[in-house]
Design a protein around this nucleic acid. Structure first.
Lengths: 199, 199
DNA sequence: CACTATTTTGTAACGCGTTACAATTATTCC
DNA sequence: GGAATAATTGTAACGCGTTACAAAATAGTG
């Protein structure tokens, strides 16, 4: 045997196990005590390691949050899929999905804040914080829904984007500009959907 | 004279002078070195007082930022007013205003971040951070523009809100979800305007 | 001037995310 | 077992926003 002496590097499965444990504990803290309770020191305590070790497994807090985003978005789109059960009309499906998407963020402002507004965590340039195939894959759900409507094929992508951006804007505005007497978010969402379908 | 002995409280004009000075220096730091450079300690140094004194004049950093928001939004809407000079057609006016609004935030991501994403500064519940009559007054600009179009009177408020929210969503998405191949923001804005006008 | 009341400041601290670096621990090979 | 190497941890620190509290400074009256 000519293997290198000394302690071996972490095995891939050990790395994954630890990362999953960290992400899992992060999610628990978040769900039990909210976003503000999710500090690195708190997380390290729950995991049973030192804060240093967190940084050995994740580049920093934003990367941890990215894992949580995946889980949260998974929930959102699972809920949407459930809402669409047995619904056939393409435009109704799109409308229900949009309503469901916006409603979720309004019902879970802490999640919204975590997913869409976490750039404040790092005092650096606004980072891309919704990267990942999984995230973009979820956006694909809306593009599929729009594609099934009467929207011309060449317009599907850009109209879907307008809708997604619009919905995010609804959630952001209602969650953050609280002293403005906004109208009903569901109605506003409908206006956006109607606009995307007919414009 | 039966005046109370001891040092008198600050006079209203002294309070205002100091607050203005703090806000002014904050804006200078922000414009020269960006949002991240705007720390309380830096600000106190520039003003020439201790960090404690900042807190004697402002409740905290968010309140200082609110002063800056007013100035930034004033710029945005002044630019919009300039763009609309000599433009008569109501729908074109709306479209240009919307384009100008979105373009501004895309050209000034640091400003966007300051105005729309500063909740991370305070580790508390998502605060209402665009309060103030001045802010809402600026939103009124869009409502007036929509009112001049063919949108039915009873629909003006809610459609304006859909547009405002949509535009904010465009800026947020383009500024933060950078690895997604978004289409042209100007085109997306046009879709939103068209949707609001015709839906 | 002394006295008084308010303002400002200094000092220290908290927890935050993060980094540097050395010591300790753990795991392998020989 | 010793040696080697990687992982983990302890200690300290940085600047951040913020707070507590006492000391120092200031601005007024008599």
């Amino acid at each position: 045997m000519t293997a290198k002496p000394g302690r071996p590097p972490r095995a891939a499965k050990d790395i994954k196990r630890m990362r999953d444990k960290i992400a899992e504990q992060a999610m628990q803290i978040f769900q039990q005590d909210g976003f503000d309770a999710l500090s690195i020191r708190r997380l390290a305590r729950e995991v049973g390691c030192s804060p240093m070790t967190i940084y050995a497994h994740f580049d920093g807090k934003p990367e941890i949050l990215r894992h949580l985003w995946g889980a949260v978005l998974g929930q959102v789109f699972a809920k949407i899929a459930e809402q669409l059960q047995g619904v056939e009309a393409p435009e109704l499906r799109l409308r229900l999905a949009a309503q469901c998407f916006v409603a979720h963020w309004l019902e879970h402002p802490d999640q919204f804040r975590m997913v869409f507004m976490s750039s404040g965590v790092v005092r650096s340039d606004v980072a891309s914080f919704m990267s990942g195939a999984a995230t973009i894959g979820h956006f694909q759900t809306f593009m599929d829904l729009v594609a099934q409507t009467s929207v011309p094929k060449g317009e599907v992508k850009i109209r879907t984007e307008a809708l997604i951006m619009g919905m995010i804007g609804v959630a952001l505005s209602c969650n953050t500009i609280r002293d403005y007497p906004w109208g009903d978010p569901a109605e506003i969402t409908d206006i956006m959907v109607a606009g995307v379908l007919r414009a």
